[in-house]
Amino acid sequence: MNDPTAGTGRLSHPDQQVFLEYRRLLFSVAYRLLGTAADAEDAVQDAWLKWSAADRSKVADPKAYLTRIVSNLALERLRSARCKRETYVGPWLPEPVLTGTGTPEAVVPDAESAALGAESVSMAMLVVLETLSPLERAVFVLKEVFAFSHAEIAEAVERSEAAVRQAAHRAREHVRARRPRFEAGRSAQREATERFFAAATGGDVNALLELLSPDVTLWTDGGGKVRQALRPVIGAATVAAWFSAIGTVAYQGVEPADMRAELVEINGGPGMVFSGPDRVIATVTFDFDADGRISAIHNVANPDKLRAVAAGVPYDLGAR
Rank of each mutant, 00 (worst) to 15 (best):
T5W: 03
T5P: 04
G7T: 03
S12G: 13
P14S: 03
Q16V: 13
F19C: 08
E21C: 09
R23H: 12
L25F: 08
L26K: 06
F27W: 08
S28P: 00
R32L: 08
L34T: 06
A37C: 01
D39N: 12
D39M: 11
A43P: 02
D46N: 12
W51V: 04
S57N: 11
K58M: 15
K58H: 13
A60S: 14
K63D: 08
K63R: 15
R68T: 11
I69C: 08
V70Q: 04
N72G: 14
A74P: 03
R77V: 08
A81S: 09
A81K: 04
C83P: 00
C83M: 15
K84C: 07
E86A: 14
E86M: 10
G90F: 03
W92P: 04
V97T: 10
V97D: 06
L98S: 02
G100T: 10
G100Y: 10
G102N: 03
P109V: 14
P109S: 13
A111R: 11
A114H: 10
A114R: 12
A115P: 05
S120I: 01
L126G: 01
E130L: 10
T131A: 02
E136H: 13
A138I: 05
F140S: 07
V141F: 05
E144Y: 08
V145T: 11
F146I: 05
H150L: 15
A151E: 14
I153R: 05
I153D: 03
E155A: 11
A156L: 04
A162Q: 14
Q166C: 04
Q166Y: 11
A168N: 10
E173T: 12
V175C: 05
R178P: 02
R178L: 15
R178I: 00
R179I: 07
G185L: 01
G185Q: 00
S187A: 14
Q189I: 05
E191R: 14
A192R: 14
E194V: 05
F196W: 12
F197I: 09
F197V: 09
D204Y: 09
N206Q: 15
A207V: 07
L208P: 07
E210M: 09
D215Y: 02
D215L: 08
L218H: 02
D221T: 03
G222D: 00
A229G: 00
G235T: 07
A236F: 10
A236N: 10
T238Q: 14
T238S: 11
A240S: 12
A240T: 07
G247L: 03
G247W: 00
Q252V: 04
E255G: 02
E255Y: 03
P256N: 10
R260M: 03
E262L: 06
E265P: 00
G269M: 09
G271I: 01
F274T: 03
S275R: 13
S275L: 06
I281S: 01
T283A: 01
F286A: 04
F286K: 07
D287I: 06
F288S: 03
D291R: 14
R293C: 03
S295Q: 09
A296V: 05
I297T: 09
H298Q: 07
A301Q: 04
A301F: 00
P303R: 00
K305E: 00
A308M: 06
A311P: 00
V313C: 01
P314Q: 11
D316L: 10
D316S: 12
G318V: 01
A319T: 10
R320A: 14
R320N: 14
